[in-house]
Simulated assay, not measured.
Amino acid sequence: MIEDVLSGTACVRTARLGHLGRIILDKPGRLNAVDLEMAQGIERALTAWRDDPQVQSVLIESSAPRAFCAGGDLKAIRGVLLAQGPDVAFDLMNRAYQTMLHIAQYAKPVVSFMDGIAMGGGVGLG
């Protein structure tokens, strides 16, 4: 069953299929560009499954065939940069990098279906 309850956001849906936890990026209108909301949603799912013995591996995929992930949401970063300055924009970008680091150091195997566009931070997620 696909849901967004675990991630806490509609742009990151989750599902379980046997021992596989699925993280489904679901912001097709923005080519799944990573913003703070998406990074936090991915983190919530990974944290929930970290100590769950029923989840033995994690799959990251896209809900749309056009793009896996176009990278960081540059439009959102630009808006923060102009409105709140470079320090806040840096913190926003750093949060996405921390999510990528969490994936890289995750104790369970993480596999990505990088079907479609994958650029910058999208490759980092994969």
Score class of each variant (00 low, 15 high):
E61I: 12
C69N: 04
R44C: 15
R16F: 07
G72H: 13
E43N: 15
T14D: 05
A83C: 08
P86D: 11
S112M: 09
T47F: 13
A70F: 14
V110M: 06
L101W: 15
V110G: 08
T47H: 14
L6D: 00
V12F: 00
A83E: 10
D51C: 04
R78E: 11
P109H: 13
E3Q: 08
E43M: 10
Q98D: 11
T99A: 08
A15D: 08
L82P: 00
N32W: 01
R44Q: 14
R13S: 04
M38T: 14
G41I: 05
S7G: 05
P65A: 02
M100Y: 11
G124I: 00
I103E: 04
Q40P: 00
D91H: 12
G41H: 04
A89N: 02
N32A: 03
R44E: 12
G120N: 00
A70Q: 14
T9H: 00
P28L: 04
G21P: 07
V34K: 07
W49Y: 12
D35T: 06
C11M: 13
A67R: 07
R44G: 11
L125Y: 02
S63Q: 04
P86G: 13
L59W: 05
A10N: 11
L101Q: 15
V58K: 04
L92A: 12
T99K: 04
W49N: 02
S57P: 00
W49T: 06
S62F: 02
